[in-house]
Design a protein around this nucleic acid. Structure first.
Lengths: 253, 253
DNA sequence: AGTCGCCTGTCCATAATATGGACAAGAACG
DNA sequence: CGTTCTTGTCCATATTATGGACAGGCGACT
């Protein structure tokens, strides 16, 4: 039922926008958009420049990179209320952050991407702050992304990984590696990765499912590796798993 | 140089989105979108439904109305920093709100629309709260919209009014009325309207220009009419004009 | 009951639109 | 000064989006 047709151009424009969103403030060079979307360069060029004329995309004069423009947040103002997930997760994040003391991330799934929607900084003096609220990555690249893939039926996860394959190269990974990590996480009950995006960091992620069983988000703790030995990993994982279940209750009710 | 071509569909989709944004949470019926955009119904229908599949638009099951979807704020997260205008206007709004005591609105121009970007509630016990942050209207409909039109060269204003003409009917006005109000505001140096959107309210708006002379926003005070007699109108207008100039300085520097 | 008015959704032949191969030109590098 | 990277533009082509026409649903009025 999905593939309604007669709007190829619109779908393509949105694909471009989502790639640009992953580039955040700095934006993305045209060639990168071409690679990530699999479209031809003239097509991407045309789309991007029309979006610039419409105020949806901006071009940074210095770097020549393209980024999400002004009008997108303006359109977003039409939706005033904060998301259900954010409200439901708030007390759990506060509790877990106080208990653990390391940086805590809440990461939602949106299409084939993960999107960091909340971050809590702990009290421990060394904090991993690599990821900001708004950060967006292909599902499978980050610890949270692997956790979310692990929480869905294997065929669905494979489909998403295949769809994101072109984008993995930019993050120094590939489909096979990702699928391996997903399998490991599924066995373990949560995801753990020894080598975080920043050297010397370690991450633990648990998934959060909606009432219909689809994964909606992940909760992640990142810390310097030395602070997450096997024993503490166990402790932290238990807290995260407990709070993940609490959030699931809150969404369901 | 503007009209780059080869993307009619994308432009149309954005036109639809902007109309939907004006409908806020409640959304807009399809027929209204058709009227406001001047597109044919099959075209709008197709665009809207593709945008639904893409998560950009939502349809309220009860009412059948279409509204801006979840993914728009998600894309907007790619632009973390608050707008320049909001930062620059903050102290002025605080000051003016304390001094005046009635509700104060900051309204920006975006394309052919006005967008309420900030609101300060005063200390006087009766406050006009008709407009929320995020409210969007065709330029010319609201007091702020007329002020912004009055601040630009007459031919530009006429062009915008012509472009919005189809949408005026939904707000019980028309191009001729709007142009009359604009002329009056231009003579007066600020805009005043005796009959606000809500019965019995009166509004005063001043415009704020960017360094290049284009109007960027308007500052508006709304109050019950009895509270804004000729004498107080004068006082309030002076405060608003003073703060408008202050904001212009802050943007320029 | 019928009929009018206004709404949403769908079909498909057609024409207009978006496409992408090919070309051009600038920048960074050795 | 060739090589390889990038971004931008042209235009003949066929793919894609278009909109007139048709269909069905709902509520109001008679």
């Amino acid at each position: 039922m999905e593939p309604r047709q007669g709007a190829q151009a619109i779908r393509r424009a949105l694909a471009v926008l989502r790639i640009l969103a992953a580039g955040r403030e700095d934006g993305v060079p045209l060639a990168e958009v071409v690679r990530a979307t699999g479209l031809t360069r003239p097509t991407v060029h045309r789309i991007v420049h029309v979006l610039i004329e419409e105020g949806i995309v901006e071009r940074h004069n210095k770097t020549g990179r393209y980024a999400i423009g002004n009008q997108v947040p303006e359109l977003a103002l039409a939706r005033p209320r904060p998301s259900r997930l954010l409200v439901a997760a708030n007390p759990s994040l506060r509790r877990a952050s106080a208990e653990i003391g390391d940086t805590l991330f809440l990461t939602a799934r949106t299409g084939n991407d993960t999107l960091c929607v909340d971050r809590r900084i702990g009290i421990y003096p060394i904090q991993v702050l690599s990821i900001e609220v708004g950060a967006r990555r292909p599902l499978g690249v980050s610890s949270a992304g692997v956790a979310i893939l692990a929480a869905m039926p294997a065929p669905d996860a494979r489909k998403i990984v295949a769809a994101n394959e072109k984008r993995f190269a930019a993050y120094q990974t590939d489909a096979a590696t990702v699928l391996g990590q997903v399998t490991a996480a599924r066995k373990r009950g949560y995801n753990m990765r020894e080598i975080g995006l920043v050297q010397g960091t370690k991450s633990i992620s648990t998934w959060i499912k909606t009432p219909d069983g689809q994964p909606a988000a992940a909760m992640t703790v990142s810390a310097v590796r030395t602070r997450l030995g096997p024993r503490r990993e166990q402790e932290v994982a238990e807290i995260l798993l407990r709070e993940a279940r609490t959030i699931e209750q809150a969404i369901g009710g």
